[in-house]
Design a protein around this nucleic acid. Sequence first.
RNA 1: GGGUCGCUAGCUCAGCGGUAGAGCACUCGGCUUUUAACCGAUUGGUCCUGGGUUCGAAUCCCAGGCGACCCA
Length: 505
Amino acid sequence: MASDDLRATRLEKAQQLRELGINPYAYRWEVTHQAAALQEKYADLGNGETVDEQVAIAGRILNRRVFGKLAFFTLQDETGTIQLYLDKKTIQDSMADVDADAFAHLKQLTDGGDILGVKGTIKRTDKGELSVAVSEFAILTKSLQPLPDKWHGLTDVAKRYRQRYVDLIVNPDVRQTFRRRAQVTTAIRRFLSDRDFLEIETPVLQSEAGGADARPFTTYHNTLDMALYLRIATELHLKRLVVGGFERVFEIGRIFRNEGVSTRHNPEFTSIEVYWAYGDYHDMMVLTETLITTVTKEILGTLELTYQGQAVDLTPPWRRATMHELVQGATGLDFAQFATLDDAKAAAKEAGIGNLDKCDAIGRVLNEAFEQAVEPTLIQPTFVTDYPVEISPLAKPHRSKPGLVERFELFMVGRETANGFSELTDPIDQRKRFEAQAARKAAGDLEAQGVDEDFLLALEYGMPPTVGMGMGIDRLIMLLTDSPSIRDVIAFPLLKPEDREAAEE
RNA sequence: GGGUCGCUAGCUCAGCGGUAGAGCACUCGGCUUUUAACCGAUUGGUCCUGGGUUCGAAUCCCAGGCGACCCA
């Protein structure tokens, strides 16, 4: 039967309910129990046994098995499913004054997908299924759309993302993923709050995007008649707060980057940035390690994970190695020995590193070598330290290694997961770094940002020695939920409209 | 950006040049222990879109759309 016919059938049932004096879109239902709690509480109830405890539950009808004078429904609430045992005689006796044909109406006017409220007692059927033996029921919401195939569910990936609500209804794993995501962000907030970090929200709309190398989205304020950018990082505002005297601040917030879409990239994603005055990047590596292990242990109960078939052991302490050491180990190249950019490029090319054309500094050649030869091999958690200054415009120079900065990145399963550094607090040096970025921007680098004069002014008032760290929440959730795509951990990922022409009209 | 694969009923899929199919869902009938309930009957289509080849296209060709995977 066609989609419209299925919908018409259900609309007709809603109308019949109204004619019976029943509102197919009810106002409330007194819920006393949830499915998972009942399943747990009565796990030991024997087959055929009953319990004289009155319960009231509500949820969505997933499946109906209807006989002449008996029916079994599978009801799903947020916590799980439980069977309804619907016996004609019991229901007719209990509901005689409400609806003399209640059982017939239950059979005729309900469909899979409807939201049902029931009252009854607990019973484990002869066949061993824990059930609510229903005495009274009410159709709380009439569903007009048919549910996907009860056996195969919804498997079309595009449809799952476009209609996430259907995905959530029929795929319990998806609900588990988003439940876990919420648990993780809650646990992170608790961890930081316990250590006296304050969460302060900073602007999404900015007249100057900064704090990262990325193309921003542009937008427009009508009344002020000005162009605005959506933020590409929370960094520069959080550091202004440190200047203002907040010594421990963080923000979990949405970041927008105008770049491609892939299994690891969504144009809007969630980051956490943490700033801690009077600490350096060694302190932050310890804090990052402690934060991730504490949260993981709390949520998963173990530090030994499996990600897409790979074993990942988060037991601390995690490996720490400099970028130079790792590149030398993988390629044999010692970047400290190169006197000129051309020498570095020639040697890197010799070692099989490609994509070097755009590298305008030895540090960028080193970074290419790292990304190509080392990054994919870092499966177990690894802090890579001491980055070239050229690719780290906001980090403080290394206290003993010229040309490097005090920076770390955390890699797990071959992916960058966190990035931190001793923050650059010298306003004059920061201006030079910004100007170098601005020159790149002027030369056509769409990911380079300009000079943020107000941030420089803030630094001139004086920022205490501070360490900062940023982490991609989505990538962390991917790891903790064993999700292959970032779209599996974002409830509503960006998709192109299904019908381009219709969308453009 | 390149390559490969996919798009057929509400859902899951078959059909690959000769009348558009199945299971589930829906509708009707039967049924008081089912759990992918079962039995019987019926119903349901822009075969992603547009163009081309052909007597004839879901099927072959070209272009486009959306998506998945791999590569950069």
